[in-house]
Design a protein around this nucleic acid. Structure first.
Length: 883
RNA sequence: AGGCGCGUAGCUCAGGGGUAGAGUACUUGCUUGACAUGCAAGGGGUCGGCGGUUCGAAACCGCCCGUGCCUACCA
């Protein structure tokens, strides 16, 4: 006989089954298998990452889908992998070097990259192991890394193809530069933050005149690179200076006054200093008006020689300080205003980014964006929840070219070679030996690497073997669902759609499920710097992995951020224990059971048996439907309620009388208990893989693992309305009795006699037939039901539908308690009747409302009135007793 | 500056044109032979405010207040 401990202890169980699944290779998807494919690619976590609550959430949802589909018989692939995270990883290793008193320049490129690989091989797998702990059923055999040979080949293929089609180009443009990471960033990699800054008003004198113009700027140090001042052509104030030159303070350079209606007359003074090398707008103005560009900054954010001898070598912010101080002394600075404006920061290191003119590589995105928008518009890709589609379209419509070159060492080096002899740029799939133009062998490869997101954009097909035409690619592409947070909708999702369509000729996934972000109890985004992180590993340690997973699923309602509360996790930990103990009860009653979990058609099933089967069937339907629609919370709560509120609270209790003595009813109950437990465990398995496997393995069944057993399906014939109605009546009577017992503070152990007065012969039959249930669950000695029941003077009573529930209490009646109870009830009835009366006496309601609503209300009014009359009579007898 | 969410029980959150639900917390009573990480019963909400549509609004629409986020070339 199988005995369970009194409490569920997750720690050891999780380790054991985690190992078991991996050993049995259950997570593996075989590309040669013919069953319908279901595939998901994991959003590859950074190799620098540690599992945070967002990962836990994201991956729990994917695992739920994967396990569910796998159990449904699909050839289910959940593709694992990690991302090389160029800047982030380089930063980690550079920091290490720094601690050793060195920097990457000391090592040189080759040695540095080698060092990063070493770090990756030693520490890059942390998150992989943590995902295993979370129970993720990823096909580890297929683990990929964005810097793998195969994926690198894919990157080259895509780069060269795009270049050949003129969709990749190189040029001098203003980009976002991080002076700390020493690299260009794409627009997306800049995080804007509102900051309190200053608007400095500076005097620029007009050449050959005593007049001056006042310009306003937030970044005064850039004036050293000014090559013009712009005003609006319609601005009255500046008409008289048309065509004049201005003298740039400090450097005393002559700059022209140009006119452009881009200039907003209402901002600042209406006069705009123009620095084409250090501001994106000024860059555009500069091109339009053919202005000179003067780059006054070094890549590390210090000023270069063009900034003049006083400022050369100073950091940009020191320069600002010193410059302002000097300008103040020389009377150039007129005033300083407070200004709240948004400042861009590097998303990897939080340094203020600098708009910076430099030579970079770009992807021409517009031609790729068109089909990507169409795919979503025509439904080839569905974004769930739908409202994210708007965000997607808005971004795609305004998309600008994507800066893909990064001046770092860790990443895919751009497959372009510069010929030192003739200056030709050779872009090739294979490393060329000689220049395609002049045959010189003096070729030097481009030092820049590609944006990490460039390789991520290929993820859904590069992981499956592309550019080779693999069987996996054929079987699993397009993938079924992409599951991710909205924070990388543009970074990643949009780009995968563009690249998938371009290179595979098909969408990379059919559904995109966008889930919420997890925040702390105050609604703040969790971050290490704020110190408000919830560590999922700690939670798993304390409450068990299943409890965490279930909590996350229960919170996963669509379209709302999640404020994670620890007491919810505790609640679901208790649910694990509840399930554990229900199972414990079942096993305690199986010692003489010879059957299996399969329903035995010849069994003599009781009404309770058929009832739970019917309820199980409904729950099964709801779980499948909810998961189909990505309503994880509905699915989770349905299983929860079924197990706790139906199986445990009612069914187990109802079986106790049947189990009490040997016989056909006992066997039937045993059969149904384990059949339903088996199914419930399966329904719960995708959410709580560990505890379900642990219990399920002890059930009499001959399959290998619950994770590869068939998921329950809805069966029309198992829904039994008549039985559900019958049992609802029984439960109503039981609850009615318990209510009186509780409200009147009657001793729980006290056996009561109960009379039910009812005109319905059906009700009489049901109560007669199932009297045992009532006697057991409501602690009743004698139960009598009939139309001529006589109510003793000293009794408690309530009205349940058309039934009068009467509990004789001769000698133990607390009249005051009973009066309070009945008066409370009457008060509520009165309130309801007033409401209904008002509604039903409204001629418009009767005229316009649907018939079934009117009928329902009329029915309710009738039964409430009847109940009221009965209770008032009862109240009178009580009051007699009080005198 | 535009755009998108959210505001429901003390707390954390579901729901959604026909008189409000869960978990947790709270009150009362229970060492009932699965479970005190439990059982039974109970209290608790003019569903942010104001208008509108409707026979009927917490739900749909508009405005306002509060709150969170995203996008943007706010010198």
């Amino acid at each position: 006989m199988i005995q369970l401990d009194k409490q569920y202890e997750p720690g050891e169980v999780e380790k054991r089954w985690g190992r078991f699944w991996e050993e049995k290779n259950f997570f593996h998807a075989d590309e040669t298998r013919e069953s319908p494919a279901f595939s998901i690619v994991i959003p590859p976590p950074n190799i620098t990452g540690r599992l945070h609550i967002g990962h836990a959430f994201n991956n729990t949802l994917q695992d739920i889908l994967t396990r569910w589909k796998r159990m449904q018989g699909c050839n289910a692939l959940w593709q694992p992998g990690t991302d090389h995270a160029g800047i982030a990883t380089q930063n980690v290793v550079e920091k290490q070097l720094h601690e050793e008193g060195a920097d990457r320049q000391d090592l040189g490129r080759e040695a540095f990259v080698k060092r990063v690989w070493k770090w990756r091989n030693e520490s890059g797998g942390t998150i992989t192991n943590q995902l295993k702990k979370l129970g993720c059923s990823l096909d580890w055999e297929r683990d990929r890394f964005t810097m793998d040979e195969g994926l690198s080949k894919a990157v080259r293929e895509v780069f060269v193809s795009l270049y050949e089609e003129d969709l990749i180009y190189k040029g001098d443009y203003i980009i976002n530069w991080c002076p700390r990471c020493h690299t260009a960033l794409s627009d997306l990699e800049v995080e804007h933050q509102d900051m309190q800054g200053y608007l400095y008003h500076l005097k620029y004198s007009v050449k050959d005149s005593d007049d001056f113009l006042v310009i306003a700027t937030t970044r005064p140090e850039t004036m050293l690179g000014d090559t013009a001042v712009a005003v609006n052509p319609n601005d009255e104030r500046y008409q008289k200076y048309k065509g004049k030159k201005l003298i740039l303070p400090v450097l005393n350079r002559e700059v022209p006054l140009i006119e452009d209606d881009y200039v907003d007359t209402s901002f600042g003074t209406g006069a705009l200093k123009v620095t084409p090398a250090h501001d994106p707008n000024d860059f555009e103005l500069g091109r339009k008006h053919q202005l000179e560009t003067i780059n006054i900054m070094n890549p590390d954010g210090t000023m270069n020689s063009l900034a003049g001898p006083i400022y050369e070598g100073l950091d940009r912010f020191e320069c600002r300080k010193k410059l302002i101080s000097n300008l103040k002394d020389s009377g150039i600075l007129i005033k300083i205003e407070d200004l709240n404006h948004s400042v861009g920061h590097c998303y990897r290191c939080r340094t203020v980014v600098e708009p910076y003119l430099s030579k970079q590589w770009f992807v021409k995105v517009k031609p790729l964006a068109q089909p990507a928008m169409k795919a979503v518009r025509d439904g080839s890709i569905k974004i769930v929840p739908k409202f994210w589609e708007n965000t997607y379209f808005e971004w795609m419509e305004n998309i600008r070219d994507w800066c893909i070159s990064r001046q770092i060492w860790w990443g895919h080096q751009i497959p372009a070679w510069n010929c030192n002899t003739c200056g030709e740029v050779v872009v090739a799939r294979e490393t060329p030996n000689s220049c395609s133009a002049c045959s010189s062998t003096d070729l030097v490869q481009e030092t820049d690497v590609l944006d990490t997101w460039f390789s991520s954009a290929l993820w859904p097909f590069s992981t499956l073997g592309w550019p080779e035409k693999t069987a996996s690619l054929k079987r699993f592409y397009p993938t079924s669902v992409l599951c991710t947070g909205f924070d990388i909708l543009f970074f990643w999702v949009a780009r995968m759609i563009m690249m998938g369509l371009k290179f595979m000729g098909d969408v990379p996934f059919k559904d995109v499920y966008i889930h919420a972000l997890i925040r702390d109890a105050e609604g703040q985004k969790m971050s290490k710097t704020k110190g408000n992180v919830i560590d999922p590993l700690e939670v798993m340690e304390k409450y068990g992995t299943d409890a965490l997973r279930f909590t996350l699923a229960a919170f996963a309602a669509q379209g709302r951020d999640i404020k994670l509360a620890e007491d919810r996790i505790e609640g679901y930990r208790n649910f694990c224990n509840k399930l554990w103990n229900a199972s414990r009860f079942v096993f305690m009653n199986l010692e003489d059971y010879k059957g299996s979990c399969v329903l035995d058609k010849r069994s003599k099933f009781s009404s309770a048996d058929l009832w739970i089967l019917s309820r199980l069937n409904r729950a099964t339907k709801e779980v499948n439907e909810a998961l189909e629609a990505f309503r994880f919370n509905d699915a989770a709560l349905t299983v929860y309620k079924f197990i706790w509120n139906e199986y445990c609270d009612w069914y187990i209790e109802l079986t106790k009388s049947k189990l009490a003595s040997p016989g056909r009813e006992r066997v039937a109950a045993q059969n149904m208990l384990i059949h339903v437990l088996d199914s419930a465990l399966k329904l719960l398995h995708p959410f709580m893989p560990f505890i379900t496997e642990e219990i399920w393995q002890k059930l009499p069944q001959d399959e290998n693992s619950i994770m590869v057993s068939p998921f329950p399906e809805y069966r029309e014939a198992q829904t039994n309305e008549a039985i559900e109605k019958e049992m609802a009546l029984i439960m109503e009577v039981i609850t009615g009795i318990r209510n009186i017992r509780g409200e009147m503070n009657l001793n729980p152990g006290l056996k009561l006699n109960v009379l039910v007065k009812t005109q319905s012969s059906e009700t009489q039959q049901t109560l007669k037939y199932h009297g045992e249930y009532v006697r057991e669950l409501a602690r009743v000695e004698k139960l009598e039901a009939g139309s001529n029941v006589v109510k003793p003077k000293v009794s408690a009573s309530s009205v349940l539908g058309e039934m009068d529930l009467i509990i004789p209490l001769e000698g133990m009646m607390d009249f005051q308690e009973e009066r309070n109870r009945v008066e409370k009830e009457l008060k509520k009835i009165e309130k309801d009747l007033i409401f209904l009366d008002k509604k039903l006496s409204n001629p418009n309601f009767v005229k316009k409302a649907p018939v079934d609503i009117i009928e329902k209300d009329e029915q309710r009014k009738k039964s409430l009135s009847l109940k009221q009359v009965k209770l008032e009579i009862h109240l009178k007898t009580i009051e007699q007793g009080l005198c």
